[in-house]
Design a protein around this nucleic acid. Structure first.
Lengths: 338, 338
DNA sequence: AACCAGCGCTGAACCGGATAAGTACCGAGA
DNA sequence: TCTCGGTACTTATCCGGTTCAGCGCTGGTT
């Protein structure tokens, strides 16, 4: 079942390959009558441009790359990436761009994937996520000359185009809210300390707490899994100066924390208030429903894709600050019982 | 920053393009000395084969397609797809195949994506998921002649290669287990009735219940979201003949159901046993931890990818039955209180 | 009538590799 | 010494598009 080429169309229409090419691409150089005839034939035999042949003529690859460097078992748990991907997709699909996805084991593998994709002309650009402190990937992709958008804070993006949201503001809003409710012992169960956004949130949390007179603040780092979230919660709740509020860095840890509290007969929200970063359906199906930091994650991905496509087109390449996460108050937060 | 071609290497090495091609592909026809020289130059200038040029010579596209047809908000919630994808990836990466991913709105869009990818030689094959009853996609991809593996039951896969697991057996095991515990009123909160696997599980559930004397069995269909899971649970728990056990079709609905039960002061597991299909970390972070139907989802994806690669290579193309989900008993199931 | 512009098309080169066919050279065997 | 066979290359062609130069024809201008 050989797929038809323009040569087939040319033969059937009795014209040259060149004429067919002009006709199919809406270029001048053929009469309307001939164009219509050619289009009719192309449609009839189900012709599609051979993508490789087009690409060989210096055309775009019409694909962008995304390499995710997290173990499979972490990836699945958080809705975050799937939502980011669907947002990216929505933007790409509108321009008929495809997304090349690869789950890799480490940053080295990630870079070699990018190098391969770029070297082979398989992608026109890429999106970098999960920035680390002093991330070696940034100078490396800079050197490659590949268009890249970073989903993360500009401070770590080097000369690459960043798309980010002001996590610091969200942290401050959360601490302010908890303080206004009357909390004075607030803790944070954070993600991996090497991630840039963790560092930024940590910093903002410490600063806000100090500033607002939250004396007993503390941060525990985890790997984002429910187990570690549960363990951190157990540690916090069994300490002598038990916190009256805990802010979690993702939804799964918040849910795990809630369960631990219930297990230890710590009432939520009377004895303990809980806030989850990244509000998700998960926050709304547990009892009490969790107060969360809501953001439009698909939009976040879509904006990154937009910027990347602009970059590829050589157009506007400025940084983009997305709106900061908003606090959505639900049943898991309340003034602490005296 | 022009990317180097074999012509550049040929010029530097003082040989012809052909010799370079032979050297780089490990073919005979060049001396070891020349080969080493050419490889050294290629390595030094960072040459990569232009993927389009290779593809144009009839080579494989070295990519497979996956179009997911579920709204973004559903996709994110279930860990299932992300885990499937990481499993597929693991298999593809080993063979340097890429995954083209697209999230589409409906089956029509999905088919036009496949048609485009295949017509443009962008993929060598595809994986079909979420089979419907009388799915129009099956005859359509059959007609296209594209290698396709179906993740779903053979009965709906037509002439395509199916990779599936015996959901019926898992349902029977679950019902047997609940009956052995003493339950006689068991209900099922299912996914979308049009999906093939929902129909299969429904059927197996009804049959098993009838056979084992579960008189009060009932099935409620939902869209897999937590909200609908909660609503279904509320309905079941407020009916006069309240079930003593509910089996949910995914983890998020099971968690939602657990919350509803706690809200209604229905004790789990004393008054109500809960079983979740697709055991996930989520099941283990709630209290009580949920009894779940465990399966190795990444392996499921990996097997599909394996079969697809074999199919593309023209090799073994038989169907593959994965192992059936196993029941993992946890705290959410127990004999019903009299 | 001579000239030119523009239309509508053809023919050929080109993109970067793979590969079949051809050639120059060397050493071994008759 | 001549041939044969193999090695180590070169040359040319092909894949399926795009694109550029050129060519014949027509119609309008001078």
């Amino acid at each position: 079942m050989r797929r038809p080429t323009i040569a087939d169309i040319a033969r059937q229409a009795g014209v040259s390959k060149g004429a067919v090419s002009y006709a199919l691409n809406g270029q001048r150089g053929v009469s309307e009558a001939t164009r219509a005839r050619i289009l009719a034939i192309a449609d009839e035999i189900g012709w599609r441009p051979n993508f490789a042949a087009r690409a060989l003529n210096g055309a775009r690859a019409h694909a962008v790359g995304l390499a995710l460097c997290r173990p499979a078992r972490f990836l699945g748990v958080e809705p975050f990436f799937m939502e980011v991907i669907s947002g990216i997709e929505a933007e790409l699909a509108a321009r008929s761009y495809a997304l090349l996805l690869q789950v890799v084991a480490d940053h080295e593998a990630e870079m070699s994937i990018y190098r391969r994709w770029w070297g082979e002309h398989r992608v026109d650009g890429a999106i970098l996520v999960d920035l680390h402190l002093d991330d070696p990937r940034v100078p490396q992709v800079e050197a490659m000359g590949m268009p890249v958008v970073v989903m993360g804070h500009p401070s770590a993006a080097g000369s690459l185009v960043p798309v980010w949201s002001d996590d610091g503001a969200a942290v401050r809003e959360t601490v302010e809210y908890l303080v206004a409710l009357g909390h004075r012992r607030v803790c944070r169960v954070a993600g991996m300390p090497r991630l840039v956004h963790t560092a930024i949130r940590d910093r903002a949390f410490s600063d806000a707490c100090t500033q607002m007179g939250v004396t007993g603040h503390q941060i525990i780092h985890t790997d984002y899994t429910g187990e570690e979230g549960a363990r951190a919660t157990r540690r916090l709740l069994s300490s002598p100066e038990r916190p009256t509020a805990i802010v979690y860095d993702n939804d799964i840890m918040a849910v795990a924390g809630l369960s631990v509290a219930q297990e230890l007969r710590v009432r939520v929200p009377a004895d303990l208030s809980i806030v989850a970063w990244d509000d998700s359906p998960l926050c709304q199906v547990v009892r009490p429903p969790l107060t969360g930091l809501t953001r439009d994650i698909p939009a976040y991905g879509a904006h990154a894709a937009q910027r990347l496509l602009a970059l590829i087109d050589g157009g506007d390449t400025g940084p983009l600050e997305d709106e900061a996460p908003r606090l959505t108050a639900r049943g898991s937060t309340a003034p602490p019982d005296a």
